[in-house]
Computed example of a mutant assay.
Amino acid sequence: MKKKFIVLGILFAVFGFAKMNAQILSNKAMGALGKGVSGFTFSDADAAALAKESIAEMDANNPVAGPTDGYSIRLNRLFGKHASTDGVALNYKVYLVKDINAFACADGSVRVFAGLMDIMDDNQLLAVIGHEIGHVVNHDTRDAIKAAYKKEALLDAASSQSGKIETLTGSQLGKIGSAMIDSKHSRKQESEADSFSYDFMKKNGYDVNAVESAFRILQNLSEGAESSFITKMMSSHPDSGKRADDAKKRATKDGLYKEYVQQKIDNTAPAKATPKTPVKKKTTKKK
């Protein structure tokens, strides 16, 4: 794996910006940036264009599961019916790495790591990925890109004699990429994405108790050997235990709560049936 991903980064949208085409932003947005306008136009289309270039770079530099891989088959079985949610077109792929992670981008790209699929069953995966989709639908991913882009672009605009930015350099894009990887959604955004996940599960007839269960898994992991690292990393996010409690309260209020029992996890591809060789009948020659 050429890029290092943060363990347990499930609740963060992660983007890589290396070698990105700087001209994908609209001329209007670029002109506003050059003039130092604080509220420059940054549309959903601009954010999606940046994300699309980013995810293409990431896909090219990470082991992506092929269509016949068991991980891909499982993910497509779960989310094939959710190619579009709340007007957002979605696409899904699996990275064959052991990190426990999932993220979504402003263009609707959702990437799930094999490590996550190894520890969560179908309903728990639906809950976690539903959360990530929530960040896209709620425009959290767009706002995160905008903040990082504005910071780097305006710094250079302020120091430029002409005050006008025509293109972004590779160095600028690298700074934006680093800022995006280090960024974290606010507690409010995380809570709203949690609510989206619960509503997503309920609306589609899935077991809403898996939302609590997924957070319990994260809570248990945070209390293990990596607890100090995970606690530091998630310091700006709601506690997994509290989020589990909140999901339980909602399910109880809806009259749907029951203790969730994790189901079987199977990431293997179905065995191909071996065609039977027809048995030739013996014939006897007439004398």
Rank of each mutant, 00 (worst) to 15 (best):
D207Q: 05
F215Q: 01
S84C: 06
K253H: 08
V94F: 02
D46L: 00
K4R: 15
M233G: 04
D69R: 01
G108F: 02
G163K: 08
S178N: 15
T68C: 05
L256H: 11
D254C: 13
S171L: 13
V37W: 08
V37K: 10
V14D: 09
F5Q: 06
E190M: 04
I6P: 08
T167F: 10
C105W: 08
K35P: 00
G170V: 11
R142I: 03
K151E: 15
I24D: 13
A244G: 05
D156E: 11
D207A: 05
G108M: 04
L75H: 02
F113E: 04
T85W: 07
N138E: 00
A32V: 02
K35N: 00
A89Q: 14
G205A: 09
P270V: 01
E53G: 14
T283W: 07
D107K: 00
E259I: 06
H131C: 06
D69P: 08
D86G: 13
F42E: 03
L173Y: 11
Q189M: 08
S72N: 12
A13C: 13
S26L: 11
A244D: 04
K98Y: 07
V88T: 14
V128D: 03
M233S: 09
G255H: 04
L11K: 10
M120Q: 14
K285V: 11
D199F: 09
G224Y: 01
E259S: 15
H135P: 09
K151G: 07
K164E: 11
A147P: 07
I129G: 04
T252C: 07
